[in-house]
């Protein structure tokens, strides 16, 4: 009787760890930093949190839509995902033959990315959290001033179709996180907090009263062109857009 009892405990532990479909995460130690955009010399405080080591893959997302039929290609509502949602998939539950299971999921909207993370008991990272982790190169937590760090990112922007590559194919950074640069762009929970009004691109006066408060954009380090591109991209998209080089990963709060 005792052995049976033990066996049951063992089995429950075994299934408990293997079947809850959680992807690997690493711990990120919080801190303060000045993001590219924000008010000049305004430090942002980041609390400790966990981040997915890799972006969500085609395979993981496939499992998600199998369990959540309302997010299948044919069922997703237009308000939550535009017509490019999973556009390359062969069917509701099958990838295209050219798509790798281990490649990052793309062509997904903000709404579905948010719900995917919530289903795992996680959430999307904020812009500040994402940028904080992405400042790191292989060796140091803030490599933004290094020439080769910026060159790597800008070099990637010129490479076509990196979204077809598999996760883990770029470098492992200081925190143990892969693929923040070099694979796909990623959704953040508050991407729509990037306010780009007319005056950030030119001095056309007619757009200047589109936004309350003074212009939110104010580059603290224009040298960091790579990051500028990310903010500009976030400022230009809507939450139901499904874009072929835009994926996501999840994070989780550290309790207590």
């Amino acid at each position: 009787m005792k052995t049976v009892f033990r066996l049951t405990i063992f089995l429950s532990l075994f299934f408990g760890t293997t079947a809850n479909c959680q992807s690997k995460m690493v711990s990120i130690k919080g801190g303060k930093y000045i993001p590219l955009y924000g008010r000049e010399s305004l430090q942002v405080k980041i609390s400790d949190f966990y981040m997915d080591v890799y972006p969500v893959t085609n395979q993981e997302f496939l499992q998600f839509v199998i369990k959540n039929p309302k997010w299948r290609k044919s069922m997703a509502k237009n308000i939550f995902a535009d017509k490019n949602y999973l556009v390359r998939w062969k069917s509701d539950t099958a990838l295209n033959s050219t798509q790798s299971l281990k490649a990052p999921i793309t062509n997904v909207s903000w709404f579905v990315a948010k719900e995917y993370c919530e289903c795992q008991g996680k959430r999307l990272p904020t812009i500040d959290e994402w940028e904080y982790v992405a400042m790191a190169n292989e060796n140091i937590p803030d490599a933004r001033k290094l020439k080769n760090y910026n060159e790597f990112i800008l070099g990637w922007y010129e490479k076509p179709k990196t979204f077809n590559n598999e996760i883990g194919s770029t470098f492992k950074n200081y925190w143990g996180v892969y693929d923040l640069h070099g694979l796909v762009w990623e959704w953040t929970s508050d991407f729509n907090s990037v306010l780009i009004s007319g005056e950030s691109r030119n001095d056309v006066d007619k757009d200047s009263n589109l936004f309350c408060g003074s212009a939110a954009l104010n580059a603290t380090d224009l040298m960091n062109y790579a990051a500028f591109m990310r903010y500009a991209f976030r400022g230009s998209i809507n939450a139901n857009y499904a874009i072929k080089n835009l994926g996501f990963r999840c994070v989780k709060d550290k309790k207590g």
């Binding site: 948010k114 729509n192 306010l195 936004f211």
Partner: peptide
Amino acid sequence: REFSNVLAVKYK
């Protein structure tokens, strides 16, 4: 945040 995304309203 979700509602603002439906309206395409940006805020920070």
